[in-house]
Design a protein around this nucleic acid. Sequence first.
DNA 1: GGACGCTACTAAACCGGTTTAGTGTGACGC
DNA 2: GCGTCACACTAAACCGGTTTAGTAGCGTCC
Lengths: 338, 338
Amino acid sequence: MPRPTINDVARAAGVSKGAVSLAFNNRPGVGEETRARILETARELGWTPSPRARALSVSRALAVGLVMARPPETLRADPFFPSFIGGVESELSQHGYALLLQVVPEHDAEHQSYRRLSAEGRVDGVFVTDLFVDDSRPALLAELGLPAVIVGPGLPEAYWPAVGVDDQPGITAAVEHLIELGHRRIGHVAGPSEMVHGTSRREAWANALARAGLPEGPWVESDFSAEAGAAATRQLLDLVDPPSAIVYANDLMAIAGMSVAAARGLDVPGQLSITGFEDTELAAHVQPPLTTVSTDVTGWGRAAARRLLELIDQREATEFPLHPTRLVVRGSTGPAPV
Amino acid sequence: MPRPTINDVARAAGVSKGAVSLAFNNRPGVGEETRARILETARELGWTPSPRARALSVSRALAVGLVMARPPETLRADPFFPSFIGGVESELSQHGYALLLQVVPEHDAEHQSYRRLSAEGRVDGVFVTDLFVDDSRPALLAELGLPAVIVGPGLPEAYWPAVGVDDQPGITAAVEHLIELGHRRIGHVAGPSEMVHGTSRREAWANALARAGLPEGPWVESDFSAEAGAAATRQLLDLVDPPSAIVYANDLMAIAGMSVAAARGLDVPGQLSITGFEDTELAAHVQPPLTTVSTDVTGWGRAAARRLLELIDQREATEFPLHPTRLVVRGSTGPAPV
DNA sequence: GGACGCTACTAAACCGGTTTAGTGTGACGC
DNA sequence: GCGTCACACTAAACCGGTTTAGTAGCGTCC
């Protein structure tokens, strides 16, 4: 038995298909009684309007896109996307929207991807993640007229709204926690400085030190990967005056860094304190357990989705409170060595 | 400027829209010369057929679905999906198909999800992951008439094709590697026995021991999470006669297990050897680096996507060779203690 | 009692493609 | 020289909704 169509419902209810459409979309033009009969008939027949047909007639795709621009091999360890997508989906599904995923090997291909999504009308809007300091995507999307929401800290002059937990307070809390423990020389392993969240976390670290009247500590730019995090850690530990604590821009690098320390026979936290960022599942289960900053990525996805739908419908932005970041103190931080 | 439609192209090329459609789909019925002119005109106008309209007229969604049935919070650490999706996408995009993602909190909701995707005609087929030993989804999908490909080891009597790297040789290789190192008492931390890949890996472990003439070692059922992996490890180490090596069903549990050992002051690999499964990014960057089994998840995604498209088009299955699993020996395994 | 307006509803156009039935033309066979 | 067939192509129907223009019926007002 093929799916029933609006015609079947109309016939069964003894009305025209126009009436069925009106009834289903809560539009005036049908009597209360007729509307009830139509809805009841639809229920009996198990009819749901087909998004395919709807999409064509309302000239909307009823879907939004997320383009992940990374080589698939690098994606594998990223703990961000699965939870983020979970949040996004929970919001979208309530509004009859679907999430379309695209994975492209590198950033250049991402432009292509957006152009295609737009040209084919596959989506009504997109998320932009991992914003660069000098990112060309917002402009491209503006040119294409494709609504977008930037995921993560945005840029002041940005064309599109940015939705994200402010990551600075979390880093600040981590630095303050270390200062309280007596650390005076606190290093940082940063994300790429061409990425907004790489820079923003580094600034938070530097500012917290400055506010405490401490000299800026040593820092190394890395790329959020375990490999580079390990290398950066070696660099910091090789300094003539190595830091007694290191603040990492994410958990992956922090865990890799902790292993480097362990391999060198350094005791964590006895001789070196370490903090991460993100509170990945593994953070609580490495040895010692990682002190890190937990962020509500799922809620973040929900908020981003909601904002994008508002943008698409040209509605006003509503407030959507996000859980602020929270410092989770575990075993990888301890009193500064004397 | 709104997107051009097929009508614009037809008018500009001086033909009917039927001709444009024929030309674009490589169907006979238009002369070579006309076809060339049409294609050229389309190129000039920047026209691409709208998947929306196509979907409606060919009664296809031109999209496939992937339902992830886990609480978003548990998804966060799963390194499988991002690479898998990367592979899937790379195949789909070549055929004008898109990937629709759905995340539902638990397994029951997954049924709902499939029913909706099917009822709304959002997708032409779906992937089924994390198959249960007694899984009701294949039957549901058969009932709905929604083509499906099972991702991972399938079941013999399964209705749908299964695509996946056979995980048994990898586990076997790990066990044999340990035996070669002199281990005689080799434990296992398994995935849930109600999941096919939990059971299949445990069987591979048991069989490898049996083939070597060794007694079956102790094993504990776990659930692939770091938390449960740590608990399982404690259980094994608390035995009066603890194993000298443990084979874990995935990296996450193995890394958590390694931390448990470290916390107890056990030297890895001096007193305890450990192997993982999956070769996640972090595996190479923990201390000691984890000996594990690497699988080609991206290729796997590609293969699954290809098979699903074949199924949708009712084409014959083509062979698609996958890189077999490979044992990556690192520092977490060593000679058995004497 | 005719003009007017309102409500409830229908018929038909439309979204942008694909597909089917049908038409005109030239080549070919006999 | 005429029937026939293949070929290139067009017109129109169709997919399943939404939306617009139009109509019937009824109450109201002057």
